Simulated scan of single mutants.
Amino acid sequence: MLEEKLKEAIVSELKRQAANRPQLLKVEGSSEELVVNGKVDLADLVMVIAGSVAGGP
């Protein structure tokens, strides 16, 4: 289902960004509800979402 893939892509990317920059970004929660505190690299997030919609990994 597209909605589930999008949720997974968003959560995974935000958690990846938080792991790479723990001093700048904290992400807690699941695919149902997230708490995001800090700076998000929007360009990377958009790229991951576009790839998910296009059928990428």
Score class of each variant (00 low, 15 high):
Pro57Gly: 11
Glu8Leu: 08
Ala9Thr: 09
Leu42His: 10
Ser12Cys: 03
Glu33Thr: 12
Arg16Phe: 08
Met47Pro: 01
Ala54Thr: 07
Gly29Gln: 06
Ala43Phe: 13
Asp44Glu: 15
Asp44Ala: 14
Glu4Tyr: 07
Ala18Thr: 03
Met1Arg: 11
Glu32Met: 07
Gly29His: 04
Leu14Ser: 09
Ala9Ser: 12
Gln23Cys: 07
Leu2Ser: 07
Gly51Asn: 13
Lys7Leu: 05
Ser52Ala: 15
Val27Phe: 02
Leu42Gln: 12
Gly38Tyr: 00
Ile10Tyr: 03
Leu45Asp: 02
Gln23His: 09
Asp44Met: 11
Val36Gln: 01
Glu3Asp: 11
Met1Tyr: 07
Glu3Lys: 11
Glu33Phe: 13
Val48Ser: 09
Gly56Glu: 03
Lys39Ala: 13
Ala43Ser: 12
Glu28Asp: 11
Glu32Ile: 02
Gly51Ser: 10
Ala54Phe: 09
Gly56Tyr: 04
Glu3Met: 06
Arg21His: 15
Asp41Gln: 10
Gln17Gly: 07
Ser31Cys: 13
Glu8Phe: 03
Lys26Thr: 14
Val48Ile: 07
Leu25Gly: 02
Lys39Pro: 04
Leu2Lys: 10
Ser12Val: 00
Glu33Tyr: 12
Val27His: 00
Lys7Cys: 02
Arg21Tyr: 09
Pro22Met: 06
Val27Asp: 02
Ala19Phe: 01
Gln23Phe: 03
Glu32Asn: 12
Gly51Trp: 05
Leu42Met: 15
Val11Thr: 06
Ala9Tyr: 04
Arg21Ser: 14
Ala54Asp: 13
Ser30Lys: 10
Ser31Asp: 14
Lys5Ile: 05
Ile49Tyr: 06
Glu13Asn: 03
Lys7Thr: 02
Asp41His: 13
Ile49His: 08
Glu32Thr: 12
Glu33Cys: 08
Arg16Met: 05
Val46Ser: 12
Glu28Ala: 08
Gln17Phe: 07
Ser31Phe: 07
Val48Pro: 02
Leu42Arg: 13
Gln17Glu: 10
Ala18Lys: 00
Leu6His: 05
Pro57Asp: 13
Ile49Pro: 08
Leu45Ala: 02
Gly29Glu: 04
Glu4Asn: 07
Arg16Trp: 01
Met47Arg: 15
Glu3Pro: 06
Lys5Met: 01
Gly51Thr: 05
Lys39Tyr: 14
Pro57Glu: 13
Met47Glu: 15
Val46Ile: 15
Leu2Arg: 13
Lys7Ser: 04
Glu4Gln: 12
Asp41Leu: 09
Gly56Asn: 06
Val11Phe: 00
Gly56His: 03
Glu3His: 08
Glu32Asp: 15
Ala18His: 01
Leu42Ile: 15
Val36Arg: 04
Gly55Cys: 11
Lys26Ser: 14
Asn20Gln: 15
Ser52Lys: 01
Ser31Glu: 15
Met47His: 11
Ser52Tyr: 02
Lys7Trp: 01
Lys5Arg: 14
Gln23Pro: 00
Met47Cys: 11
Lys15Leu: 10
Val48Gly: 01
Glu33Val: 12
Met1Glu: 02
Ile49Trp: 06
Gln17Arg: 05
Leu2Asp: 06
Glu3Gln: 11
Ala50Thr: 13
Ala50Lys: 15
Ser12Arg: 14
Val27Gly: 02
Asn37Ala: 09
Gly55Asn: 10
Val48Glu: 13
Arg16Ala: 11
Lys15Trp: 04
Ala54Ser: 14
Ser30Trp: 09
Leu2Gly: 09
Ala9Pro: 08
Val46Met: 14
Lys7Asn: 03
Gly56Asp: 03
Gly55Lys: 11
Ser12Trp: 06
